[in-house]
Nucleic acid binder design. Structure first.
Lengths: 115, 115
DNA sequence: ATCTTATATCGCAAATATACGATTAATGTT
DNA sequence: AACATTAATCGTATATTTGCGATATAAGAT
């Protein structure tokens, strides 16, 4: 009978370069159809809609709320309470900062030379 | 004593529009620093490197292999065996197709009008 | 004050992702 | 044939994500 030393599933994300982490975090937030759809919905409506999103998406209120939270925590959207309702809108500052960075990432990657 | 009917965590991703799913799938693949770093490494080296990636990344061989598999299955990279070694490179077709789509997504979202 | 409405959060189940050691498979080398 | 090297895969532990019902909270309406 012998012991097995057990490794643990430590999160190693934070040992990558800051800029790499930033891109990955953005991508992660975009990495679910519901969240893409939420961003599109927020952009389409002129005003910042709230629970209307729940009606648009084929998901429960609880689940939509969760996705909104994820988007908010990642910085893609902002949210504020307006009476009973809760009003979300795109975080333009963040998105306008990150969009070119992501684009630059692809540009850098797609320079001829590879393969 | 009464039963609780238990809902199951069905994956609802596939009921979103095709184009939304496509973007989300791309983003999901990019949603980890290791995978961003792998793509950058593949782009930097002229030739398609293989196990060199393992040396660059602060992760075990098994883990890197797993990330490579994820990138391959998502279509971002291609891989082929070359003797003992295994050689990966960017899937330029896919990336050159998706980069503008992602860019367009941001453009659509960032049209003035919201909030 | 009670009732309704809107949304966040809790608690749970299930699925997926992350990480690695150990092993396997397949090729190259001696 | 035996050994070394490379990389995929298996098995496992743990963490995170996805999803929803139920509940809590807080504001508005009656």
């Amino acid at each position: 009978m012998r012991y097995k030393i057990k490794y643990m599933a430590i999160n190693k994300s934070n040992i990558f370069p800051e800029e790499v982490q930033e891109l990955a975090a953005l991508a992660k937030a975009l990495g679910h159809p519901a969240r893409i759809a939420i961003l599109q919905a927020l952009a389409q409506k002129q005003s910042c809609i709230c629970g209307e999103i729940v009606e648009i998406l084929p998901l429960s209120q609880a689940t939509v709320s969760q996705h909104l939270k994820a988007l908010k925590e990642a910085g893609l959207i902002k949210g504020e309470v307006e009476g009973v309702k809760s009003c979300y809108c795109l975080n333009l500052e963040y998105l306008e900062k990150m969009s070119p960075l992501l684009n630059q990432f692809f540009k850098n990657i797609l320079t001829p030379g590879c393969c």
